[in-house]
Design a protein around this nucleic acid. Sequence first.
RNA 1: GCCGGAGUGGCGGAAUAGGCAGACGCGCACGACUCAAAAUCGUGUACCUUCGGGUAUGUGGGUUCGAUUCCCACCUUCGGCACCA
Length: 816
Amino acid sequence: MANIPIYNPSEIEPRWQKRWEKDGLYNSDIDPSRPKFYALTMLPYPSGDLHIGHWYAMTPSDARARFKRMRGYNVLFPIGFDAFGLPAENAAIKNRTHPKVWTYRNIDKMRKQLRSMGAMFDWRREAVSADPEYYRWTEWFFIQLFNHNLAYRKMSPVDWCPHCNTTLAREQVWGDDRHCERCGTPVIKKNLEQWFFRTTNYAEELLHYDTIDWPERVRVLQTNWIGKSEGASVVFHTEQGDPLEVFTTRPDTLWGVTFMVLAPEHPLVQKITSPQQAAAVNAYVKQTLRQSDLQRESADKDKTGVFTGGFAINPVNGERIPVWIADYVLLTYGTGAIMAVPAHDQRDFEFARKFDLPVRVVIQPEGQEPVKEEDMTAAVPAMGTMVNSGPLTGTLGDQSFDKAVEYVERIGVGKRAVNYKLRDWLISRQRYWGAPIPMVYCKECGWNPVPEDQLPVLLPDDVEWKPTGESPLKLHPTWRFTTCPNCGGPAERETDTMDTFMCSSWYHLRYLSPKYDQGPFDPKEYDYWMPVDIYTGGIEHANMHLIYTRFFHKALRDMGITRGPEPMLQLRNQGMVLGEDSEKMSKSRGNTVAPDDLVKSFGADAVRAYLMFFARWDQGAPWNSSGIDGTVRWLRRSWSAIVEPADGGSAGEAVIRSLRRKVHQTLKAVTRDFEQFEFNTIVSGLMELMNEMLKAKQQGAWGTSAWNEAVEIYLHMLAPVSPHISEELWAYLGKPYSIHTRPWPVVDEDAASVEQITLVVQVNGKVRDRIMVPVDISEADARATALVSDAVQRNLAGRSPKQVIYVPGRLVNIVG
RNA sequence: GCCGGAGUGGCGGAAUAGGCAGACGCGCACGACUCAAAAUCGUGUACCUUCGGGUAUGUGGGUUCGAUUCCCACCUUCGGCACCA
């Protein structure tokens, strides 16, 4: 037995990885003769360590890409690095290493780790967002957005960490107390002039998902995030004559307005405030500014506010109503001013009761006791018949909204309006390690883009990246000084850099041609590969990256750069691998699992298979360190089943028949599961088949043509899951390299079919007997067979059947 | 508070279109091999039982010959949003 090899993953895995790479086995090139399939997995941030979450996301994505390739598609499965971002700068400050050095060192390490997965990445297409030939085009896109009026600059409050002395991206503000991810200090707001993208231009289109197959969860998250409200905008006037516009979703309650409330920061506050109220108003405004967002936006907080001393006129009935300010009205939503209808809005009701303001009922919900102001303990928000509403009094609930809108439009004081919670995307970052914003400010000509032939605006290497609160680029002695592209006079560069989500909004396009220098991507590659057919990654990006990249694609489409309504046709999200203690994995908790160690102990093939097997992919589960043993055992059993000879040829027809049946039934199920992202049952199906194969081997099937067929099909199905062991065994059998370029096997329906079925016999819905019958048994025979069963007779106890239900191929249910 | 997902053995999970609940694996128990252990292999493994059967898929109802699956109400849990006018 000395010539029988033993399974040694640490020897075979690196060997095949080298061979595949040398042969360019996973290179994907344009091939019009085959249908294309662009499989994209979210690109990692080069933190320096490929953790188990990366493996969990990428391994099934890779297996499915491999499956699609065997199904005849020309598959593109690229990889790259989202290489700009704050952690590199934080590490730089801590370790006195340049962010560039830190980032590229990490990328080198992660490339090695990614290669150890044995994934079919086409490394020729790798893109790194911090490479100048990449961010040249990130800058170029900024200029296109600017030229199409989709990028603009305005003063805006942003999250600021007072300890790190820097602004933070929204995703770096954590928890209910809105603290800085790095140091734990609660953030404050700071006013800065910033660049924005007009994502809100696309708010409506972003709500439509009819051309894409995305998970309901993501669609719901995005829909809530975009937050569409339909209503009316109505213009009131102050007594001084200034227009005061409000947005309302309840135009039918206009006659119930008893006061108005402005956000404390509203521009009309100073003007409308009477001299007597000035001191109180100023004190309240100051107090509001001092509060954190958390204090201010807490919904269960008692209402606070101050009367301005000013009044406004209700345009539908001419009533004079007091104007207050209160922090429950936000400047950033709608117009920053509301019409208050305490009878029909709970927030207004609470405010009215606290400050003793009038409450007037103008809606009577149908089929209920009439609502009376004096009995009310809460607002009545339901729709209903309009009362006390001038010309619209008596309008029924189902018409009240439309009639009210028509009315304000007719008398010229308002119109139908839609509001979204979505805000324009703030992309300025006061950081060094990001793509420079390619804009120049000239005192004479204002802001102008850097001419495209001067791109990229390179990041200077010689900077101090101390956390001073200013962009390090601003402190560079020379970098910021330049000449105006318009008049040639002295000018200054924008020293803020771009949000890294800008880089990741278009990386799927750079993969197409990462070296291309005539544009962001080669149109020939775009025409062949785009759109992305399947996108896999974490759901935590639902309201950030996955909205940004859709916005980006649509904006570029309107400029004629991209085509089609959406960039990614299908999206699937993996769940999260938790620590063995069922808590989120974190270094501080000490519950992390290192994939490098697992690969060392068990091999990449076992880690891949286990990650696909141990949980439903879309749900994730806590890690179980002993669970992987079962997967390892199964791979070893597979190995020895195939390489260890046995006494063969003596298997009877029944053994052969049932082996072939199992093989082709499994092939059918595995094929379906790959299509449907049900990875755990792929592995369990292969385990079941291996158990059957071992039984058949014991029964003398070894060496028969059915056995050889079983082994071949088994290895084809195993290849996407565990690519190294299947390639090794394929070669061991003397088959031509490589199994990964082979076509997916075809199901032999005859072999998969059954001659005998188990007929389940129920009495009153309870299983009483199971009888083997021919698959093509007639209904009459099935009924007769069931009725004569001893168990049936016993359970009927002499009663005669009232009804007999027959489900062909499954069961007979006797109702007695 | 609003929106969404999920509740099945000791654990992860399976059950294609309403039809055999618990596949596959972990763990556990026993056995074989071994001086012994590990590894490996084999057998068993929801609960109760008077051995006929009975009870079980978060809880309570409903539809149905039949419900883990469909409907209603509720509970628990995870995630998101949250004074959005």
